[in-house]
Structures are given as structure tokens and as C-alpha cells.
């Protein structure tokens, strides 16, 4: 498939997915009323409330989180020169999970900042801290070793994981439930202030990452090969790690751990249009948004009126799909 074709298809699919996400839910809404409410008109106050304060912010937040997870996954896979790499490999998810658990157990009655709960702030801080530590561990005078980063990510992940377990050990039943719900991932806490925060991060990341596409392509050849092609390898690596940490960190902060989007989406896009990051990065962002919107809509529908944590759904559907990709990887020229 030509990259342009896929980009056009996805660009058309995104507004459609947004609209479907707003229309469908525990209560199916009449399309005419929804359009009126979206335009700020309409006389049904209850419908207007659902659309403007519940469904619309949630749909936009879902799209942003999906886009961020997928585009950061694509960038990490390029940086690590490993099509199976995932942002969780460098400790973001484990660190965020420990941070969120800390906030749940010790946060008590403290309130959050600017629409973000203390749990979200804890998750963001934990995720970012983990990445900084991993990056420091892997960096010396000779530069950053990507292999060491992967191993340091595993080590930091283990430390953060045991910290989380320790907290769970001391947590009350109510806290335990909140921790496990957070870990499953969900977008039910969506509101406009959260959308604004994630959108600000997304604008930076979606603005800066595509400019790294040529450098990422060169990096796939190898680090010294990229350097010989004129790429400032260490600066690019630092930039990519920071962007991915911020992108995944803020996603995890507002939506918990949503598995497999960052892994599966770039993988599928690569199979369709090849590994060239000039097409891969924007297409992954769009596809991530569309797919997470579809998954979240499904999660809200399957056991309505209550809803499934979307992270559970992406893991449930994503993992088998990923296994089938692994088994067929040679058909696509993967090692």
C-alpha cells in the first residue's frame, strides 16, 4: 500500500471514529441531537450535558492517548532498532504504576492540580523518573548504549514492580481495588482540563517527532552508520527518549496502563506501508487514535451500562493478534 493512501484512509476514519464514539454508549444518542449539541445549539439540556461534558472530552482524550501511545511506540522501535520494542521496555509503565500506587496509598486526602488527580501526577512523576534513571544508567562518556538501556529498563521495571507489590501488601482493600483498576487502564476520568493537558503534550510530540523521521530511518542502519550519514546520533537519541517518556508518561497518567497500542499499531502500519518513518510516524498516530477510539467504544458497550477497563480490552484483543503477527513475521521480511 502507498503511504499516502493509508494516510488518506486514516484521516477520513478519524472523524468517523470520533463521531461513533460520541454517538454510541450506555445510552445511544440521536445523531441530529448530537450534532446540535456539538455546535452548542439544541434544546435538550440532558443530551447537551452528555455530549459536551462526558462523551466529547472522552472521545478526544481517547484519540490523543491512542495517537501518543502509537507514535511513541513507533519512535522507540526505531530508536532500539527492534520492531518488537515498546515504551514499557524503558520503564515508563512500571515507574508510572509505582508512582500511582504510592499516590493511592499515601496520597490520602491531598487533592491534585489543574484537573489532574494526585494519582495521575504520581503516575507521570513515576514514569518520567524511571526513564531518567534508565537513561542515566545507559549513558557514559562514549554515548548512550541502547542495549544497556533495554537491560536497565528491565532492572528499573523490576524495582518499580516490587515497590508496587510492597505497597499493595500494605494497602487496604479499598486502595487495592483502586490500584488494580488504575492498572487496567481506563478513560472514564476524561474532562476538558485533562484533554487540554494531553493535547499540549501531543502538539509538541506530534510536531517534533516527524522531523526526526530521516534520522530514525538512518538509525535503523545502525548507530555508527547513522553518524556517518551526518545524523547527530546522541542528540537524536536524547530527544527521542525524552519525547517518548513525556508522551507515554502523560498517557499513563490520564488513562492508566493501556497495553499493546504502542506495540501493535506501528507493527501493523509497518506491514502495510513499510518501515519508512516519514509515513510510519503520522500513520501510526492516526491509526492509534482510531483503534483506541474503537476499543474504548467497544469497552463502553459490551457490558453496558457499566464498562470494561479499556486496557483490559486492548490486552485481550492485542495479545493474540500480536502472537499471530509474530508467527507470520517472516512473510513481511522481519527477522
Amino acid at each position: 500500500m502507498k503511504p499516502r493512501t493509508l494516510l488518506v484512509v486514516l484521516t477520513l476514519a478519524l472523524p468517523a471514529a470520533l463521531l461513533v464514539a460520541i454517538l454510541l454508549g450506555a445510552v445511544a444518542l440521536p445523531p441530529a441531537g448530537v450534532f446540535a449539541a456539538l455546535l452548542g445549539q439544541g434544546d435538550d439540556a440532558r443530551l447537551g450535558l452528555i455530549v459536551q461534558h462526558i462523551r466529547a472530552p472522552r472521545a478526544v482524550l481517547t484519540a490523543l492517548v491512542g495517537a501518543l501511545l502509537a507514535v511513541c511506540g513507533a519512535a522507540m522501535q526505531g530508536l532500539f532498532r527492534n520492531p518488537l520494542a515498546d515504551p514499557s521496555l524503558i520503564g515508563v509503565t512500571a515507574g508510572a504504576s509505582a508512582g500511582a500506587s504510592l499516590a493511592i496509598v499515601f496520597g490520602g486526602a491531598l487533592s491534585g492540580l489543574a484537573g489532574l488527580s494526585l494519582v495521575s501526577l504520581g503516575a507521570f512523576a513515576g514514569g518520567t523518573l524511571a526513564v531518567i534513571v534508565v537513561y542515566r544508567l545507559a549513558t557514559d562518556a562514549a554515548g548512550t548504549s541502547v542495549a544497556t538501556m533495554l537491560l536497565a529498563g528491565i532492572a528499573i521495571g523490576a524495582i518499580a514492580g516490587s515497590l508496587s507489590s510492597l505497597l499493595e501488601f500494605y494497602a487496604s482493600n479499598d486502595m487495592l481495588r483502586r490500584i488494580s483498576l488504575w492498572r487496567m487502564g481506563g478513560l472514564d476520568g476524561a474532562n476538558w482540563p485533562r484533554v487540554a493537558i494531553v493535547a499540549a503534550v501531543a502538539v509538541v510530540i506530534l510536531g517534533v517527532l516527524p522531523a526526526q523521521a530521516n534520522a530514525l530511518n538512518a538509525l535503523l542502519l545502525g548507530e555508527s552508520e547513522a553518524r556517518h550519514l551526518g545524523v547527530a546520533v546522541d542528540a537524536v537519541k536524547r530527544r527521542l527518549v525524552l519525547l517518548a517518556a513525556a508522551g507515554v508518561g502523560v498517557s499513563v497518567a490520564v488513562a492508566g496502563a493501556i497495553a499493546f497500542v504502542g506495540l501493535v499499531v506501528p507493527h501493523v502500519v509497518r506491514m502495510l506501508i513499510g518501515p519508512d518513518h516519514r509515513g510510519l510516524l503520522p500513520a501510526s498516530a492516526l491509526a492509534g487514535a482510531v483503534l483506541l477510539l474503537a476499543a474504548d467504544t467497544l469497552a463502553r458497550l459490551v457490558i453496558a451500562p457499566s464498562e470494561l477497563p479499556v486496557g483490559l480490552l486492548t490486552a485481550l484483543l492485542g495479545a493474540p493478534f500480536f502472537i499471530s503477527l509474530l508467527r507470520r513475521r517472516r512473510e513481511y521480511g522481519m527477522p
Binding site: 527492534n82 520492531p83 535503523l220 542502519l221 545502525g222 545524523v231 518501515p275 522481519m334
Partner: peptide, 18 residues
């Protein structure tokens, strides 16, 4: 040098123009 991503030959050669 190892390149495990499914670039076409044409794309690999084009990387030389980076």
C-alpha cells in the same frame, strides 16, 4: 551491518542521500 527492518533495496540505497 545488520538491518532487520523490511526496507526495500531501493529505500536502503536512498538512505545514502540522507
Amino acid at each position: 551491518s545488520t538491518l532487520d527492518f523490511p526496507f526495500t533495496v531501493d529505500e536502503v540505497v536512498a538512505l545514502g542521500r540522507t
